[in-house]
């Protein structure tokens, strides 16, 4: 790209090239702005002093943070969301590591089937699975959905993310380490615990972060399982936004963005962004 100037000596053409490159970078910048705009706006609006949604805010205050931290429905929704996401992540990691081990090791009959089965939640529309679970719960007459059902459903939706991440890191691991451990007399269990799990740790950690994030953020499945006893923060936010056009969601959203950013930075540190690159 640097060789263009002497290839096209005519000043007019050189100018056109410069304009073209400027235009390209300008277009790129505009789309970057498109990607960050909603996040930035939410953060700015959360510090408003007005009682309605307006941009730019007429004045700045921390009123809405005080407001959301004192609201009991937010507190209980945050608590149950945290419990659900934490439990679902822990269970999904255990189940996912076992399944990934199977998928990453040598081929066996029916491996393709196992792969399709455990990843199948990715291929079905969330709203279909959500309604399907709801339908079954009604059928077996679980009339008031509580925490366990919610957690099990969240394990199911986060499992594919754990598996893809752990699988990738196990597939890239050096198999000779494992063989060395075994030839030195380690039992399969010891080998698995000390060698396989250790080398797959970044993948497991990345998978856990993704699982926690996607479980905490889920709307589609949770909205069908919400009851008077258990609900999640995103589901509560959806109904709040629908009926009250005030800036309190902005304050909650800003807190969520901050936590997500911390998780994202941690994910990037352990090299987990590759999980996005190889789908």
């Amino acid at each position: 790209m640097n060789s263009d100037r002497f290839l096209l000596p005519a000043p007019v053409e050189a100018l056109l090239w410069k304009l073209g490159r400027l235009l390209f970078h300008g277009v790129g910048l505009a789309w970057q702005l498109f990607m960050v705009a909603p996040l930035i706006i939410v953060v700015v609006v959360s510090f408003t002093s007005a009682s309605y949604l307006m941009f730019p805010p007429p004045g700045y205050s921390l009123d809405w943070y005080r407001e959301v931290l004192s609201l009991s429905w937010i507190r209980s929704a945050v608590t149950s969301s945290l419990i659900i996401a934490t439990c679902a992540t822990l269970i999904a990691v255990v189940i996912g590591v076992l399944a990934s081990r199977v998928l990453a090791k040598r081929p066996f009959r029916g491996r393709g089937l196992v792969e399709y089965l455990v990843l199948s939640p990715l291929f079905l529309p969330g709203v279909v699975i959500g309604f399907a679970i709801f339908n079954v719960l009604v059928m077996i007459q679980v009339d008031r959905v509580a925490m366990p059902q919610m957690i099990i459903a969240h394990v199911m939706i986060t499992l594919p993310f754990v598996i893809r991440s752990v699988w990738a890191s196990m597939a890239g691991a050096d198999i000779s380490l494992e063989e060395a451990a075994q030839s030195l007399g380690a039992t399969p269990a010891q080998t698995f615990w000390h060698v396989v799990l250790k080398s797959a740790r970044p993948g497991i950690l990345a998978g856990a972060i993704l699982a926690f994030t996607f479980s905490f953020n889920d709307v589609t499945i949770s909205i069908f399982l919400t009851s008077s006893r258990v609900t999640t923060l995103p589901v509560q936010l959806v109904s709040h936004i629908e009926y009250n056009p005030d800036p309190s969601p902005a304050a909650i959203s800003t807190l969520m963005i901050a936590i997500t950013l911390a998780l994202f930075v941690f994910l990037a540190r352990i090299g987990g962004l590759n999980a996005f690159l190889e789908r």
């Binding site: 990607m35 939410v42 941009f55 969520m256």
Partner: peptide, 19 residues
């Protein structure tokens, strides 16, 4: 480009509601 993928879809949509 990647970071928004991890941010809650409700938060992102709410941002567009405000805009």
């Amino acid at each position: 480009v990647l970071f928004p993928l991890m941010v809650s879809v409700v938060v992102r949509t709410f941002g567009w509601v405000v805009i």
